[in-house]
């Protein structure tokens, strides 16, 4: 299974809406007991500005602008706490107008050999199709989308596959980025409560879906 070669898993929750970035600072989170006091004290704050706030804890990266809220982590033990944090923030700031939420599963795999690494490109987009114009064509980026979704939600599921842009354990790295996107509300902005319910109910589905997509792709590369 491809998950045996998984080296880095970056999960981010990205929300589009109208935010006041300066509210959600480390000490505000600690004051609400959503993170530990010590985590707030040792937070690595890069910028606190009315347009943008960015800081990180040991396990969490936070970036908030006026219309985009992003929490991410590369540490799997903290994925559930990350979800809890998003739910809690928007349960407190329940009047925040939100328009969409995306769960992004960015996974980096160390492929054990050159052949299978090459096959990622060759099987998913047969390179023989390009051999008339290129001597040695390689796939640089493949993006597949399903929109509208096939479940009850508005939005899309998108998958992007590209050679790894991070140095991994083995030289043949592949990144698979699954973006599980939900539009919330209609033309008007929706309250945060809808997003909180959606995140609670779709969390397991989103994790499993990203795994399913990855394994399906691998089954074509490595039958």
């Amino acid at each position: 299974m491809l998950k045996n070669y998984l080296q880095i898993y970056n999960l981010s929750i990205v929300i589009i809406g109208d935010f006041n970035p300066v509210i959600i600072q480390p000490f505000w989170l600690a004051h609400k007991k959503l993170i530990r006091e010590q985590e707030a004290q040792t937070a690595n704050v890069e910028i606190i500005h009315q347009e943008v706030v960015r800081y990180s804890l040991d396990w969490l990266n936070v970036e908030i602008t006026k219309d985009k809220f992003t929490l991410s982590s590369k540490q799997e033990p903290f994925f559930e706490p990350l979800k809890d944090l998003v739910i809690s923030i928007f349960s407190i700031l329940s009047e925040t107008p939100l328009r969409a939420i995306g769960l992004n599963h960015l996974k980096y795999f160390s492929i054990p050999d050159k052949t299978r690494h090459y096959q990622f490109g060759n099987v998913l987009a047969p390179l023989s199709n390009f051999k008339d114009s290129f001597e040695d064509p390689r796939l640089l980026n493949l993006e597949i989308i399903e929109q509208p979704r096939k479940d009850i939600f508005n939005g899309s599921i998108r998958t992007r596959i590209y050679p790894s842009d991070l140095k991994l354990q083995l030289p043949f790295g592949v990144a698979i980025d699954v973006n599980d996107h939900y539009d919330i509300g209609s033309e008007k902005n929706s309250s945060a409560n809808e997003m909180v319910n959606l995140l609670t109910n779709q969390w397991d589905f989103s994790l499993k879906k990203s795994e399913e997509i990855v394994e399906n792709i691998w089954s074509k590369i490595n039958p």
Binding site: L6, Q7, I8, Y9, K74, E76, P163, K167
Partner: peptide
């Protein structure tokens, strides 16, 4: 295709 970058701490496969 490869931009060699290194990532800080990560915890996968827990």
């Amino acid at each position: 295709p490869y931009l060699i970058l290194e990532s800080k701490s990560y915890f996968t496969g827990a």
